[in-house]
Measured scan of single mutants.
Amino acid sequence: SPISQSQFIPLGEILCLAISAMNSARKPVTQEALMEHLTTCFPGVPTPSQEILRHTLNTLVRERKIYPTPDGYFIVTP
């Protein structure tokens, strides 16, 4: 029987999409709110552990794709 394939999207890209959507909705993007958003909006995607989430967010900050503030994470705009 054929095996169904799913699209692979890197966690960093999913986080950027989620942060962008939450920023547009003016929702604060904390790590907890981000986990909740991922569970709700990406039900088929396994939720990352806190450690993996933190590591991926730090990587995105180093890559200058997002930036942290006391009010949460935001997408870097050119």
Rank of each mutant, 00 (worst) to 15 (best):
S1M: 03
S1D: 11
S1F: 07
S1I: 01
S1A: 02
S1G: 03
S1T: 01
S1P: 01
P2G: 07
P2H: 14
P2V: 12
P2D: 15
P2I: 10
I3P: 06
I3F: 03
S4C: 11
S4K: 05
S4Y: 08
S4A: 07
Q5T: 14
Q5K: 13
Q5A: 14
Q5W: 02
S6T: 07
S6E: 09
S6C: 02
Q7E: 13
F8N: 11
F8I: 11
F8L: 05
F8Y: 02
I9N: 15
I9G: 13
I9Q: 15
P10M: 14
P10K: 13
P10W: 15
P10T: 11
L11I: 07
L11A: 03
L11C: 01
L11Y: 12
L11E: 02
G12V: 01
G12S: 04
E13R: 15
E13N: 13
E13Y: 15
E13A: 12
E13C: 05
I14C: 06
I14V: 10
I14F: 03
L15W: 00
L15M: 09
C16M: 10
C16Q: 15
C16D: 02
C16W: 09
L17G: 11
A18I: 02
A18H: 05
A18Y: 03
A18D: 00
A18Q: 03
A18P: 00
A18V: 04
A18C: 12
I19H: 00
I19T: 03
I19W: 00
I19P: 00
S20R: 11
S20T: 12
S20F: 01
S20Y: 04
S20L: 04
A21Y: 15
A21F: 03
A21P: 00
A21E: 14
A21W: 03
A21V: 04
A21D: 12
M22S: 02
M22C: 06
N23D: 08
N23C: 03
S24P: 02
A25S: 09
A25R: 08
A25I: 09
A25N: 08
A25C: 09
R26S: 10
R26D: 12
R26T: 12
K27R: 09
K27S: 09
P28Y: 10
P28V: 08
P28K: 08
P28T: 13
P28G: 05
P28I: 07
P28D: 15
V29C: 13
V29E: 00
V29W: 02
V29K: 00
V29A: 10
V29N: 00
T30V: 10
Q31V: 11
Q31E: 13
Q31K: 05
Q31D: 08
Q31T: 13
E32A: 12
E32I: 08
E32K: 09
E32Y: 06
E32W: 05
A33M: 03
L34I: 11
L34V: 09
L34D: 00
M35H: 13
M35W: 06
E36R: 12
E36C: 08
H37G: 03
L38Y: 02
L38W: 09
L38V: 08
T39Q: 11
T39W: 12
T39V: 15
T39Y: 13
T39E: 05
T39A: 11
T39C: 10
T39S: 09
T40A: 04
T40H: 03
T40W: 03
C41L: 06
C41A: 13
C41G: 13
F42Q: 01
F42A: 09
F42S: 14
F42V: 09
F42W: 07
P43A: 05
P43F: 04
G44T: 10
G44N: 13
G44E: 13
G44V: 06
G44W: 06
V45N: 03
V45P: 04
V45M: 06
P46D: 07
P46Q: 04
P46A: 07
P46N: 05
P46R: 05
P46G: 05
T47K: 13
T47L: 08
P48G: 02
P48Y: 04
P48F: 05
P48Q: 05
S49V: 01
S49L: 01
Q50D: 15
E51I: 01
E51G: 06
E51L: 05
E51Q: 07
E51C: 06
E51F: 04
E51T: 07
I52C: 10
I52N: 01
I52D: 09
L53F: 06
L53D: 00
L53Q: 01
L53P: 00
L53Y: 06
L53M: 13
L53C: 06
L53K: 00
R54Y: 06
R54K: 11
R54Q: 15
R54A: 13
R54W: 02
H55P: 03
H55D: 15
H55E: 14
T56P: 00
L57E: 00
L57P: 00
L57S: 00
N58T: 11
N58Q: 10
N58F: 04
T59E: 14
T59K: 09
T59G: 13
T59Q: 10
T59L: 15
L60K: 01
L60Q: 02
L60C: 06
L60R: 00
V61G: 03
V61N: 01
R62G: 12
R62N: 01
R62Q: 15
R62E: 13
R62Y: 15
R62S: 08
E63F: 04
E63N: 10
E63K: 13
R64C: 05
R64H: 14
R64G: 14
R64D: 10
R64L: 06
R64T: 05
K65F: 07
K65R: 10
K65T: 10
I66P: 00
I66C: 13
I66W: 00
I66A: 04
Y67M: 15
P68Y: 05
P68V: 15
P68K: 07
T69Y: 02
T69I: 02
T69K: 03
T69E: 07
P70D: 15
P70H: 05
D71H: 14
D71W: 04
D71S: 09
D71I: 02
G72I: 01
Y73R: 09
Y73I: 03
Y73M: 06
F74Y: 08
F74P: 01
F74S: 15
I75W: 09
I75V: 13
I75M: 15
I75R: 09
I75E: 13
I75Y: 11
V76F: 11
V76N: 14
V76G: 12
V76S: 15
V76E: 14
V76R: 10
V76P: 12
V76M: 14
V76L: 14
V76T: 10
T77I: 03
T77W: 06
T77H: 07
T77P: 12
P78A: 09
P78H: 04
P78M: 02
P78T: 04
P78R: 14
